[in-house]
Each structure stands twice: as structure tokens, then as C-alpha cells.
Nucleic acid binder design. Structure first.
Length: 569
RNA sequence: CGGGACGUAGCGCAGUUUGGUAGCGCACUUCGCUUGGGACGAAGGGGCCGCAGGUUCAAAUCCUGUCGUCCCGACCA
């Protein structure tokens, strides 16, 4: 490709409506343009990168036994009603009607679609296992799209679905995908970490998120500093923190005027926050009240709480009336004196506390000398809090570090959730009808691209890994109006291409500085500069974007040297 | 959906307080000159000031509404 034929409109200034460096550089480097909120046009450079990432994904999916297919984006509501998700999915699903009044969704994911496809095709265990995938645009009506490709409403996703005859088979498929994901993220040059994850509403089975390490990320992962346990912040398992033994004091009511928050309580009684127990009251969609108690300096983990609440997908803060109806006093709550039958959860650590302070279910009053094991009745004791930096790993006890990251992929086992709901069955060895045992595996392609840029850039622009760079090498004649230089550059460009190197010839009649700045901004891994030294002395100058190193080669053997440099990248 | 900010040329911005009919830098076109890190000179083209109402002799500027964008909070690839 010649730069004079390439539409790569770079911007001299940073676009003002972008916040993240990846977003800014993709706009500035001419990789993409915004179309509307959460929707983007990919320009030639951006699309080339996307295709390179996709092809790495395809390669690894195929190697792992996957077969590529293509399903419609538009999905009839009937399928979603079979699985129950037409109602459950909520506002995140884009919906529309055709001229006959039939309802459809713009696919946010394809479990229903693939299950419906496979149930009509696969009859026998002999056809299993089966792994089918596609790379396609998905639609999710995010409450707040932001950060460019990081969270958009239309985005490219690779989604693979595995079908097995039993759980053991499913686990093998899962392992294959887990390995393939590692290969993919390594090949695209990401620093990443697979972490245990919560399955959320899907329930059962297990799941891992692949998280690219980046301060720009929106997720947190907890990594053990000693062993290899790592989990998403929601998933990270925690054990009780056992305090030093103390003689148990009597339960005693003390006045705490206006101390309706933990901060005020700590000031009011002049006690350490670790001695307090705080309450959070939730309600489910069905208006069931759920009271949760954790140590004052801890946060409630709603994902964990949800595992103890049946038939609820999300929690909201409870109304004051509901709290009062259960015998609670907002701002001064405690499990002591709550109406029997109210769902009351106490965190493991809070339950072990000695002589703590908690509310007394009376205005402006707290209890001191609270010993939960002795004083709390009819409560569920469980791990329901959020991990904190320094918390102990459940495996080895060493402290956790919390790291920010970008979730670029997730693998999880589905079991028979969809196959049972949608009656997708096959005949096993004994001629018996059985539901498929499924798994699903997603990769955000655009998000992967953004994550790579977040990890690989400097003040001058992007530094693409060779595997996904829009071009591997840019050949820059310093003065394209100088015919000797242009000829020399063209010769090098042709020779590179003969070696199957993806090269760009920057034949624009721009000054050298402009072309150098663009090359750095766009981030080609290698730049070959063709100037007077090349024409007069036969010296080929190669600059490595990543290190800034400049290497000089002789015209006679530069090609093999360049191949070596590329090899080392 | 709640809280905050902003909509003026392709991009980045000034002008709005104190109404008088639109400007700067970059980019773009032509010519000249220049060519190893975003040159220089000259001459040009391009905007119903987001949109709709209102106030006024007169509105980018004041008022009302509306749409859009960005950032902060409840979720996910």
C-alpha cells in the first residue's frame, strides 16, 4: 500500500471529547471516527488491526476444534421467551418490531440462537463435542457508553459455544478454550491475567475472566502475592478475620445523637472503625427485605449477597418503611431485635468480632459490647463482603493486591441451563434423551484493540506489537520529490513485500518531519528511512518504534537483517 | 436514570459578562520557495454560531424549551 492511496487522516491535535489514551490515539491516528454515542466507524487502519486480531482469534479457535459460522444479528423474541430472558434481560437489550408487529432483539449475545440451531441439527452423542463460533457485532444498550471502544453499544465480539454430552466433556471443552484464550492474548501482545469470576445470574459451574492489566480498566482483580490464586474483586473468596481474644462485655445501650453513619459513630464514641458493625438494607425486585451486616470498614459485595437470595437478579436500597416494618431503625440498625423471618446476612468477619458497636434499632442509640456469636439470632453467616487491599488469600493466607484491569474475555460453563429451557436434546449411548451440556466463551475484539493501546504507547503515539500492527514496516523516503530517493524506497518496498512483509510506502510529498510524526503516532513497529545516505552510500536506516534504536545496514544484506529484527520483535 | 460541564469552519479554540450581524491557529485549494522530526511567503474556499420558539429596531450573545456530546455513580466483551 502506498500512503498516497491510503485514507489515514491523522489529527495534529488531541480530540477534545476523548478521555482515555487509547480512545484519543485511535481518533488522532485515523483508526476510527465516532458515529454516535457508543458507535464507531472503523477507518482503513483501524479495520486492518481489527482483522489481524480476528485472524489470530480464528486461528486459535480453529486449532482448539472450533468451527466458524455466522448467525443473524436479528433474533425473534420467541427464542428469548423460551429461555425466559425476553423478560429478564431488561433494558440493555435493543428491541424492535417488524412491519407485521413481530418482536425481535438486536442480539446482545447468542445462547438462544445457537441452542435453537443445534437442537434441530444434532441428534446423537456421536456428533459431540461440537464447538461453534462467530465473530460479529453485538448490541447492548449500555446505560452509559464511554471510553471509546471500551464500552460501546455496538461492538465486535467473538462468541463460541460448546456442546458436550456430559459435564466431563464440558470441562474438557472449557480447558481447551481457556488455553486458547491464553494463546490469543499472548499473541496479540497483552499483559493479562486469567482470574476466577462470578457467573452472576447464570449460576452454577465456573468461570474465568481474562483481564488485561491497565490503570484505565474498570474492573479490579485481587491477586495473591504468594500463590497463584487470582479472582475478580466480586469473586475473591475471603475468610473470617479472627480478632484477638477479649473478655466478653455486657450488651449495653449508649446514646449516640445523630450518629447515623459509621463516620459519625466513630467520631461520636471515639472508637476505631474496626470495632463497628454497619448495616446495609436491600430489597429485591419482589420487595423482599435483605439486611446485611459487615464490619464498619468493609463494603458489601452485592454479587455474593445475591447467591443467598432466591429469584432475584438485582438489589436496590431498601425503602425506610420496609426497614421499619421489619423492626429496624434506619441509621441505627442491628440484627438484635429484628422481626423473625427477615433475611439477615452477617459477614464472616463481622460474626467473629468481640465487643463491637452496632445499632440498637432505636433512634440515636447504639449497643456496645456486641458479641455477634452470642447476641445475633436467626442470621445467615457467610462471606458477603468486598475484598480489600491486604486481605488474606483463602488458599495460603498471604495478602492480596488489588489491580485494575480491562476485561477482554470471559469463559464460562453454562451446563444445561439453555438446553433444558429450550428442550435441546440428543440421544446418548443408551438411547436416552439428554440435554446438551454447554459452555460459552466471549472475546471483545474492539476492547482488545483498545487494551493493547492502553498498554503500548508513549508520548508520541501507539507502539503496536508486530502481530496486530496495521503495517509491519513503513518505508519513508525523506524527500519523495527526489526521484532517486523515491526509486530506492520503492525498491526496498517491493523487496519487503516479496518476503511477505506487510509494508507501507509513505510516498507523500510531505516534509520528512510530518511523515516521521505520523509514523510514530500510528505506531508501525519498524520504519525504514530512505535518504541521501541510502542513495549515495547504499546505507539502509531502520528505526525500531518500541526502543527508538536506529540500525544501519548495507543495501546488499539489509533484507535478511530486517527479517532478523522483525523476528526479534 | 440522578449529579456536573459543554455545543461557534474538518480539528483545537476565542467572542457571550456589557446584544450591533463572526474571528484565531491547524487542516484544505493555487502559486512560489523549502525538504532528516509537524517549514516559510502570497492569494483563496469553507460556518443559518446544535435545533425550535420568545424578547428586541437588532440575538452567537438575553429568556424558555428541546436535542446532542463529555465526565462522575448502580454493570459487562
Amino acid at each position: 500500500m502506498r500512503a498516497t492511496n491510503l485514507y489515514a487522516p491523522t489529527l495534529r491535535e488531541m480530540p477534545s471529547d476523548a478521555e482515555l489514551i487509547s480512545h484519543k490515539l485511535m481518533l488522532r491516528g485515523g483508526f476510527m471516527r465516532k458515529s454516535a454515542n457508543g458507535m464507531y466507524n472503523f477507518l482503513p487502519l483501524g479495520w486492518k488491526v481489527i482483522k489481524k486480531i480476528e485472524n489470530i482469534i480464528r486461528d486459535e479457535m480453529d486449532k482448539a476444534g472450533g468451527q466458524e459460522i455466522m448467525m443473524p444479528i436479528l433474533q425473534p423474541s420467541e427464542l428469548w421467551e423460551e429461555s425466559g430472558r425476553w423478560a429478564a434481560y431488561g433494558e440493555e437489550m435493543m428491541r424492535l418490531k417488524d412491519r407485521h408487529g413481530h418482536s425481535y432483539s438486536l442480539g446482545p449475545t447468542h445462547e438462544e440462537m445457537i441452542t435453537a440451531l443445534v437442537r434441530n441439527e444434532v441428534r446423537s452423542y456421536k456428533q459431540l463435542p461440537l464447538m461453534l463460533y462467530q465473530i460479529q457485532d453485538k448490541f447492548r444498550d449500555e446505560r452509559r457508553p464511554r471510553f471509546g471502544l471500551m464500552r460501546s453499544r455496538e461492538f465486535i465480539m467473538k462468541d463460541l459455544y460448546s456442546f458436550d454430552k456430559d459435564e466431563a466433556g464440558m470441562n474438557i471443552s472449557y480447558e481447551k478454550m481457556y488455553k486458547a484464550y491464553g494463546n490469543i492474548f499472548t499473541r496479540v501482545g497483552l499483559k493479562y491475567r486469567p482470574v476466577e469470576a462470578d457467573n452472576g445470574a447464570i449460576g452454577g459451574g465456573h468461570s474465568h475472566e481474562f483481564t488485561a492489566i491497565s490503570d484505565a480498566g474498570e474492573s479490579f482483580i485481587a491477586c495473591c502475592t504468594k500463590c497463584d490464586y487470582a479472582a475478580s474483586d466480586e469473586k475473591a473468596e475471603l475468610k473470617a478475620i479472627i480478632p484477638e481474644n477479649e473478655t466478653e462485655e455486657e450488651l449495653k445501650k449508649v446514646p449516640t445523637p445523630n450518629a447515623h453513619t459509621i463516620d459519625l459513630l466513630v467520631k461520636c464514641l471515639n472508637i476505631p472503625i474496626e470495632k463497628t458493625i454497619k448495616a446495609v438494607a436491600y430489597q429485591t425486585e419482589q420487595d423482599e427485605l435483605v439486611l446485611v451486616f459487615v464490619r464498619g470498614d468493609h463494603d458489601v459485595n452485592e454479587a455474593k449477597v445475591l447467591h443467598f437470595v432466591e429469584n432475584a437478579r438485582e438489589l436496590r436500597m431498601a425503602d425506610e418503611d420496609a426497614i421499619k416494618a421489619a423492626g429496624g431503625c434506619p441509621g441505627f440498625m442491628s440484627p438484635i431485635g429484628i422481626k423473625k423471618g427477615t433475611k439477615t446476612l452477617v459477614d464472616l468477619t463481622a460474626y467473629e468480632m468481640k465487643n463491637a458497636v452496632s445499632g440498637a434499632n432505636e433512634v440515636d442509640t447504639h449497643y456496645t459490647g456486641v458479641n455477634p456469636k452470642r447476641d445475633f439470632k436467626n442470621v445467615i453467616v457467610a462471606d458477603i463482603r468486598m475484598v480489600k487491599e491486604g486481605d488474606a488469600c483463602p488458599r495460603c493466607g498471604a495478602p492480596f493486591t488489588l489491580t485494575r484491569g480491562i476485561e477482554v474475555g470471559q469463559v464460562f460453563t453454562l451446563g444445561t441451563k439453555y438446553s433444558e429451557a429450550m428442550k435441546a436434546t440428543f440421544l446418548d449411548e443408551n438411547g436416552k434423551d439428554k440435554p446438551f451440556v454447554m459452555g460459552c466463551y466471549g472475546i471483545g475484539v474492539g476492547r482488545t484493540m483498545a487494551a493493547i493501546i492502553e498498554q503500548k504507547h508513549d508520548e508520541n503515539g501507539i507502539i503496536w506489537p508486530l502481530s496486530v500492527a496495521p503495517f509491519e514496516v513503513v518505508v519513508v523516503p525523506v524527500n519523495a520529490k527526489n526521484e532517486d530517493q523515491l526509486k530506492a524506497a520503492e525498491k526496498i518496498y517491493d523487496e519487503l513485500r516479496e518476503k511477505n512483509i506487510d509494508a507501507l510506502l509513505d510516498d507523500r510529498a510531505e516534509r520528512a518531519g510530518v511523515k516521521f510524526k505520523d509514523a510514530d503516532l500510528i505506531g508501525y513497529p519498524l520504519r525504514i528511512t530512505v535518504g541521501p545516505k541510502t542513495v549515495d552510500e547504499g546505507i539502509v536506516e531502520v528505526k525500531i518504534r518500541k526502543t527508538g534504536d536506529i540500525k544501519l545496514f548495507n543495501m546488499d544484506n539489509y533484507l535478511s537483517e530486517v527479517l532478523k529484527v522483525l523476528e526479534d520483535l
